[in-house]
Design a protein around this nucleic acid. Structure first.
Length: 571
RNA sequence: GCGUUCAUGGUGUAGGGGUUAGCACAAGAGGUUUCCAACCUCUUAGCCCGGGUUCAAAUCCCGGUGAGCGCACCA
C-alpha cells in the first residue's frame, strides 16, 4: 500500500512541476499520449543527447534521420504489415474482443497463419466466449496496430503508415552508409525519434504509449568475421535470466565475459552491446541493482532472430522492458532486397588469397540462337547461363524458366572451360539491433532518482538526477531580491548559459530555503547564492544538492570548473 | 475491448438537490528577513465533457472522455 502511494505522489509531482503531464488535457486528454513540460522536455533532450554521444564515441557509428511517414511497401517487407495484422473477433453476446487465432489455437497447429474466413469457420464450430460462455462471434477482422495514412490526395494517394520503429530508416540508408564507411564492415547507424503504435489499451502511465520516443542502433557486421570484443576488463556482476527452455534456465549472476564464455549469450557482438547498454543506463542514473537482462525463449523470439535479450528495469511498475537487443541476422536486408529488387544491400568480403575458379559453361552462339528462337532467345540464353550441371552430350532438352523446354544442338553453343581469379564475394551483412524506449528509461530515471526524505520533521523530496540529466545544471539565487543582488545573479546566469552545454536559471521569489527545496525537487544539482559578500568581492556560495554542503568560491573559478566538469572538486 | 473503482483551483483533499463550494500546500504582488519549505497583508485559481430528471444539478440517472485495478492484448 505504501508503495502505491509513492507512485501517486511521484506522478503528482511530475504533473505539478511540469515534467510529464497528460496530453490535450483541456480537451479531456487522450489515452496513451503524454506531454513533456518545460522541465521534462529538457530532461528528455539531455538524456537523448547523452545516448547519441554514447554511441557516436565509438567512431564507427553515425547518426541519421529519416521520415516517420513510411510507404506501405517498406513495412510489408519488414513484416510489420503482416505481424501487426492480428485477427480480432468480438463476442456478440458480451462484446469482449479477443485475438481470433488464440481462441482457435487448440484446433489448428498454426492458427496465426490462417486466413480470416478459415478462422471464422473454426470459430463457428462452437468456441465459447471466455467471458460469458456464449458462442456467437463477429467476423474476424485484422486489427492493425499501425496508424495508417495516405501520401497524396484522393484516389491517387499511396497507403502509408506512421513508423512503428525507426529501424527501417537505417535499412533504407544501408547503401549510403556502406559508401560512407568506404565499404568496410563493421559499422552502425543510430536514429532517435518518434514511433507510433495504436495500442488497444495503453496503461501504466508513460510505460505504454501510442506515440513514443525511440532510440535505435543498427550495427552491421560480417557474420564470418565478427568484430573482436574484449570483455575481460569488465568487473561488474550482472543479473541474467537466460532462455527458460535452454540449459541455463533460472536467474544467474555473473560478468559479461563469463556469460559469453559460458555460451549463455550466444553472440560476441550481442554480449558487447549488453555491456554498452549497461554503461549507458548506469551513466544516466539507473540503479544498477534494478537492471537485469532477460533472454527471450526460443519460442518467443521473432522467427529471424537468433539471440534476443530484453534489458529490464525494475521500478514502481515492476520489471519493465526498456531496451531490446536482438541479433536480427540478415533478415531485414535480405527481405528488402527481395521486395524492392535493389542490388546494393550487400557487402564485399575480400578473400585472404584470390581463389582460382574454373567454370564449365555452354556459351550461346548468338548468330544461331537469335534467329532460331527469336522472341524466346533471351530466355534461352538466361537458361543456359543458369545451368548448374552441363549435359554430357548434345543435343539436349533445355528447361526454360516458364516451364517450356527447347532443344539445344551443338551449332547453338560452344562448350568452354573458363578460369577466373575470384578475389572475394558479396554477402548480406548481419545486423545487431539495440532498441531503446526513451520514455520508459526516463520514467525509471525519475523513479530511481525520486527520494522522499524528512528534513526537520517535514516531508522533503529530492530528485537525485545524474550529472547532465537535470533540466538545468545550476540555479542562481540572489539572497535578497534587492540591493544589486538580482542584477549580479542575472549576470552570472547568462555567463553560465554562454558556456557550451551548461544551463542555468535564476530564481528570486520567496525565501532562500524554499528556493533550495524547489531546485532539489526537480533535481538541479548546483545552487549559487549571491549575498552581500558577492557584491564586494565577486565570490558566491555554491551548494551541492546531494548533501546540501556549501562552499564559497569565485564566480570565475566556478565558470571554469563548470565548463571543465570539475565542480565536484571544490568540495 | 470487457468488468470494476474513481473524476472538485497547479497539487492533495472536504462537502454535497437550493452553499458567497471550505481547507492545506503551491503560485503572483508587497513587506520583513545576513543561507535551507519562517512570518504578515493582499491576490489569482476549481466542481471532466454531453444529455436527461427537476422549479432548481457540482450533487441523482444515462452516455462519453480520462485515470487506477482485474481479465484480454502488448513488433
Amino acid at each position: 500500500m505504501a508503495e502505491e502511494r509513492r507512485l501517486d505522489r511521484l506522478s503528482a509531482m511530475l504533473r505539478r512541476r511540469g515534467i510529464v503531464l497528460p496530453a490535450f488535457d483541456i480537451y479531456g486528454g487522450v489515452s496513451g499520449l503524454i506531454d513533456y513540460g518545460p522541465v521534462g522536455a529538457a530532461i528528455r533532450r539531455r538524456l537523448t543527447q547523452k545516448w547519441i554521444d554514447h554511441w557516436l564515441s565509438h567512431g564507427d557509428i553515425v547518426e541519421i534521420d529519416s521520415p516517420t511517414i513510411t510507404p506501405e511497401a517498406v513495412l510489408v517487407a519488414s513484416g510489420h504489415v503482416g505481424e501487426f495484422n492480428d485477427l480480432m473477433t468480438e463476442c456478440r453476446a458480451c462484446g469482449s474482443a479477443f485475438r481470433a487465432d488464440h481462441l482457435v489455437e487448440h484446433l489448428h497447429p498454426n492458427a496465426d497463419s490462417l486466413a480470416a474466413d478459415a478462422v471464422d469457420g473454426l470459430l463457428a464450430s462452437g468456441i465459447e466466449c471466455p467471458s460469458c460462455s456464449d458462442a456467437a462471434w463477429t467476423a474476424a477482422q485484422p486489427m492493425n496496430l499501425m496508424f495508417s495514412t495516405q501520401i497524396g490526395a484522393m484516389s491517387s494517394g499511396r497507403t502509408a503508415f506512421m513508423r512503428p520503429e525507426t529501424a527501417q530508416g537505417m535499412f533504407m540508408l544501408y547503401p549510403a552508409l556502406y559508401r560512407h564507411f568506404r565499404q568496410k564492415l563493421p559499422f552502425g547507424a543510430i536514429q532517435t525519434g518518434k514511433g507510433y503504435r495504436n495500442e488497444i489499451s495503453p496503461r501504466q502511465g508513460m510505460i505504454r504509449l501510442r506515440e513514443f520516443n525511440m532510440a535505435e542502433l543498427e550495427y552491421f557486421i560480417d557474420p564470418e568475421n565478427p568484430p573482436h570484443v574484449d570483455l575481460a576488463r569488465r568487473t561488474e556482476i550482472i543479473t541474467l535470466v537466460p532462455d527458460p527452455d535452454g540449459p541455463y534456465a533460472g536467474e544467474t549472476r555473473m560478468g559479461f565475459g563469463s556469460a559469453l564464455d559460458a555460451g549463455i549469450v550466444r553472440h560476441s557482438t550481442v554480449a558487447w552491446f549488453l555491456a554498452r547498454t549497461w554503461d549507458f543506463l548506469v551513466e544516466v542514473g539507473i540503479d544498477p541493482a534494478q537492471i537485469r537482462f532477460r533472454q527471450h525463449a526460443s519460442t518467443e523470439m521473432a522467427h529471424y532472430a537468433s539471440d534476443c535479450w530484453d534489458c529490464e528495469i525494475h521500478g514502481e511498475h515492476g520489471w519493465i522492458e526498456c531496451v531490446g537487443i536482438a541479433n536480427r541476422t540478415c533478415h531485414d536486408l535480405e527481405s528488402h532486397e527481395a521486395h524492392s529488387k535493389a542490388k546494393g544491400l550487400r557487402a564485399w568480403r575480400q578473400f585472404a588469397e584470390p581463389r582460382t575458379q574454373t567454370v564449365e559453361r555452354l556459351a550461346p552462339n548468338g548468330a544461331v540462337v537469335g534467329p532460331t528462337f527469336r522472341a524466346d532467345a533471351g530466355a534461352v540464353v538466361a537458361a543456359l547461363e543458369a545451368l548448374s550441371e552441363l549435359p554430357d552430350e548434345l543435343p539436349f532438352e533445355l528447361q526454360l524458366s516458364d516451364g517450356r523446354s527447347v532443344t539445344i544442338d551443338s551449332s547453338m553453343v560452344e562448350r568452354r572451360t573458363e578460369t577466373a581469379n575470384v578475389s572475394g564475394e558479396w554477402f548480406t551483412p548481419h545486423v545487431i539491433e539495440p532498441a531503446f524506449g526513451i520514455d520508459r528509461i526516463i520514467w525509471h530515471v525519475l523513479d530511481h532518482a525520486y527520494e522522499e526524505a524528512q528534513k526537520e520533521g517535514e516531508d522533503y523530496t529530492f530528485l537525485r538526477l545524474a550529472e547532465g540529466i537535470s533540466s538545468v545544471d545550476c540555479v542562481v539565487l540572489p539572497l535578497f531580491d534587492k540591493e544589486g543582488m538580482p542584477e549580479l545573479a542575472r549576470e552570472i546566469t547568462s555567463a553560465i548559459n554562454s558556456l557550451p552545454r551548461a544551463r542555468a536559471e535564476m530564481d528570486s521569489s520567496k525565501s532562500i530555503g524554499r528556493r533550495y527545496a524547489r531546485a532539489d525537487e526537480i533535481g538541479i544539482p548546483w545552487a549559487l547564492t549571491v549575498d552581500h559578500t558577492s557584491l564586494k568581492d565577486g565570490s558566491v556560495t555554491i551548494r551541492r544538492r546531494d548533501d546540501q554542503m556549501q562552499v564559497r568560491s569565485f564566480v570565475d573559478e566556478i565558470l571554469e570548473r563548470m565548463a571543465a566538469g570539475t565542480i565536484q572538486e571544490l568540495f
